[in-house]
């Protein structure tokens, strides 16, 4: 192909120079755009996590003297209260995720498929408004409702259902109710978005082909909503396992939440090595659950979480 080009030498040179200039400009633009991204990811995500990984693998053997060891991990294994807390956190988080899906799916379905055009927008907004209210305010609200001198207790006494003040805080059910409250919107929103894209004619076709209500739900609606369900479950699980305020405030002293252990190691006991170890354990554990969930449902991270 080079022969005909060389036959017109007067135009060959500027062609190449122009292309070169364009390529250089493109390269420069790419580098300029990559810089903030890499600074963010490397300085605030990658290096900090390598940092706690490093801390978790060293042991204090004297004042300002450390050596490499797995002592922190061994301590975690040898101390039942630690791994019990992690197991309890995990179990409760999975329970909360499942309950949130059960409670949230009908709501999402109602908003996406049953509500009229205008009430749909309003309901969706109603769903979102509590989303933006601080965790702290929500937990505080539950305290106002459920404590001994709270509104529920007062209502129960007033109606004669209870003889004296009732304390409803500081038990597992309350913690679960509070956690579901905190995360349910993260389940509803992605499911609404996926169901929104589903044509009602799919449901019609399902009935038309002789499917019953449950068959249509199981074989058509739920598979269609799967990416939204998986996205919702991942976010809900991560938020629950990583939550701090709700279990502490609603569960009180014996809430036994793993993030509380991390906080205690870091801030109360000033044992950064131990705290980092717990951090790594929580991270590995939650990632494992998320990875498993993605594998089982055949989805991937980019197209579930990012699609919100």
């Amino acid at each position: 192909m080079s022969a005909p080009v060389d036959a017109i030498p007067s135009v060959g040179a500027p062609v190449k120079a122009g292309a070169q200039r364009k390529r250089d400009a493109d390269r420069l633009a790419l580098i300029l755009l990559l810089t903030p991204f890499l600074l963010w990811i490397v300085l605030l995500i990658v290096l900090p996590h390598l940092g706690i990984g490093y801390l978790s693998l060293r042991e204090k053997v004297g004042p300002r003297v450390y050596e490499f060891s797995f002592a922190n991990y061994l301590e975690f294994l040898n101390e039942p209260i630690y791994w019990n807390t992690l197991l309890r956190t995990a179990w409760m988080s999975i329970l909360v995720t499942a309950l949130t899906l059960l409670i949230g799916f009908p709501i999402a379905y109602y908003i996406a498929k049953i509500a009229g055009r205008r009430s749909r927008a309003a309901l969706f907004l109603l769903c979102l408004v509590p989303l933006w209210v601080s965790d702290l305010v929500r937990a505080f609200g539950w305290i106002m409702l459920l404590r001994e001198t709270g509104i529920f207790s007062a209502v129960l006494q007033w109606s004669g259902l209870a003889a004296g003040p009732v304390e409803m805080l500081y038990n597992d059910v309350t913690v679960i109710v509070g956690l579901i409250y905190t995360v349910v919107l993260f389940m509803v929103v992605p499911i609404v978005s996926t169901l929104d894209g589903m044509d009602n004619s799919l449901i019609e076709a399902g009935y038309n082909l002789g499917g019953g209500r449950l068959t249509v739900l199981r074989r058509i609606v739920i598979p269609y909503a799967m990416p939204g369900i998986v996205a919702g479950c991942i976010i809900v699980f991560m938020l629950t396992a990583g939550s701090y305020l709700t279990p502490i405030l609603l569960g009180g002293k014996n809430s036994m939440w793993f993030t509380e252990q991390i906080y205690n190691q870091f801030i109360t006991r000033y044992n950064w090595e131990g705290g980092s170890t717990f951090g790594i354990l929580l991270l590995v554990f939650t990632s494992l659950v998320v990875w498993l969930g993605l594998r089982l449902s055949g989805q991937n991270l980019a197209n579930t979480v990012a699609k919100r």
Binding site: V5, I8, V11, G12, V15
Partner: peptide, 15 residues
């Protein structure tokens, strides 16, 4: 273009 010339009103616009 990878090769060749484009002229507008007789003036090459390559580059």
């Amino acid at each position: 273009p990878a090769a060749g010339d484009i002229r507008i009103r007789g003036r090459s616009v390559i580059g």
